[in-house]
Design a protein around this nucleic acid. Structure first.
Lengths: 216, 216
DNA sequence: AAAGCACTTCTTGTATACACGATCATTGAC
DNA sequence: GTCAATGATCGTGTATACAAGAAGTGCTTT
C-alpha cells in the first residue's frame, strides 16, 4: 500500500480501468470507491483528479467521473502516435545500442519466440510488452521512454484484442526479427520504418480492431 | 474563475510554472497557495495532484511539492519527441488538408511573416505558436493534436529563449515557408522531414539552449 | 566549541462536516 | 393520459479539524 493512499488508489483504479473492470462510460461513484477501498473520500478524489489529468476519466463538474470511452477512431489515432514514438525509439536504439541493451533485447526477443512457437497468446502478450520496453530503454531517452510506456499502458486492452486475430502471433514475431536485425545492424531508418508498420494499424487491421471493440 | 476552483487553480499554477513565476526546484507550500488564491487547502491539493500526474511538479510523500527542473538534457529529449510528433502532424496535414485548414495555415503563416520582417520577436513568438497549432489541427487527429498542444505548452519557456538567438527569427520563417509549400503540395514525407529539423535541436542549437538555460 | 539528542513547530495526509447543485420522482394541471 | 413543475434525495465541491511525520532549533554533554 506504500506510503500514500492517494497514489496507491490512483494505480489501483487505473488498473481496474485498463483491465476493463470499469467499463468505458461507467460512472465512478466517490463514496462507493471510498467504502470499497476502506478509505475516506478525500484520497479517492485525489486519485480521480489525477486520472482526469492523465486523460483516463472525465470529471464533469457536479456530475461525477466517468471512464472515457475512446472509440475506435480515437484508438486508431493513439496507435498512430504510438507507432511514431516507437519508430523514434527504434532509430535511437539502433544508434545508441550498448551491451546491456543489446542483451535485454535479445533476451526478451527469444522469449517472444518461445511463446510464439508454443502458440501461447497470453504469454506472448506479456513477452511482447517486455520486448518493446527493452527497445524504449535502449533508445536512452528518459522522456521518450516514459511517454512510450504510458501510451503503451493505455493501449494495452486493445493490443490484447489484436493478438487474438488469426496468425497475428507468428506475423508479429517475424516482424520482431526484422526489427532486431535492423537495430543490431545500426540501421536507424530501417528500424524506424519497421517499427512504424509493426505498431501502426493499417488496412484490414483497422476493421479487425473495430470488430473486436464492438464485441465488448 | 469558471465553475471549478480546483480546475481553475490547476491552470493558474500551471501557467505560473510555465511562465517561470515559480522557478524549477522551488517548493510549493499548500497553505501559502491557499491563502494567496483565497481558497482552502483542498482544491489546492487537488490542483497539485493533477500537476504531479502531468509531470510538471513532484510530490514527495510528507515533504511537499517542488517544481520539476527538467535540466538541459531532458529538455533536449522533449524537443526530440516534439519534433517527431510535429513531423507526423505535418505529414497528416499534407495528406488531409482541406479548405479551412489551408486558410488557417495561410493566415497564421502570413502573420508570422509580418512579425518576422518587423523583427518583433515577441509577436513572432505568439504567431509562431498559432502557426504550429494550425498544422496540428490540419492533421485531423484529435489525439495527436492534444499531445502536440500539451508538449508545446511545456516547452514554451525554452522556445521563447531560443527565439532570442541571433538570426533565429528569419531562419525560422524561411523554414516555415518551405513547410507550408510541402504541405500545400501534398508532400507528406517532405513536410515531415522539414518539420522534424525545424522543431528539433541539432548541433550548435543545443549549446545555445544550454547557455540560455544556465542564465536563469 | 562542536556534536548529538530531544522537543517543538510547521506542514502534509486523511477524515468528516456542511452546502450547493443536479437528478429523479411524484403530483397536479391541461 | 401525458407533460411539466416542484420538492426531496443523493452526490459532488469546499472547508475545517485532527493526526502523524519531518525539519529545525536549542540544550546538554563530551
Amino acid at each position: 500500500m506504500s506510503e500514500n493512499v492517494g497514489r496507491w488508489l490512483r494505480d489501483e483504479i487505473e488498473n481496474s480501468i485498463l483491465s476493463n473492470e470499469f467499463s468505458p462510460g461507467e460512472r465512478l461513484d466517490e463514496t462507493v470507491l471510498a467504502t470499497r477501498f476502506g478509505v475516506s473520500r478525500t484520497p479517492v478524489r485525489e486519485a480521480l483528479m489525477q486520472l482526469d489529468a492523465i486523460g483516463l476519466i472525465e470529471i464533469r463538474p457536479r456530475r461525477g467521473a466517468i471512464v472515457i470511452d475512446p472509440g475506435p477512431h480515437r484508438v486508431y489515432e493513439m496507435f498512430e502516435v504510438m507507432a511514431e514514438l516507437e519508430g523514434l525509439a527504434g532509430s535511437l536504439a539502433a544508434r545508441r545500442l550498448d551491451k546491456a541493451s543489446r542483451e535485454a533485447i535479445t533476451a526478451t526477443h527469444s522469449r517472444c519466440g518461445q511463446s510464439a512457437s508454443a502458440g501461447d497468446s497470453d504469454a506472448y502478450y506479456y513477452d511482447n510488452e517486455e520486448f518493446h520496453k527493452a527497445i524504449y530503454a535502449a533508445g536512452r531517452s528518459e522522456f521518450l521512454e516514459e511517454q512510450c510506456v504510458q501510451l503503451h499502458r493505455r493501449l494495452r486492452p486493445y493490443r490484447r484484442l489484436q493478438l487474438r486475430v488469426r496468425n497475428r502471433l507468428s506475423t508479429s514475431f517475424s516482424e520482431h526479427c526484422a526489427i532486431v536485425d535492423a537495430i543490431f545492424a545500426g540501421d536507424g531508418d530501417e528500424a524506424r520504418r519497421l517499427l512504424r508498420t509493426h505498431v501502426g494499424i493499417q488496412g484490414e487491421r483497422f476493421s479487425d480492431l473495430v470488430a473486436s471493440m464492438a464485441v465488448r
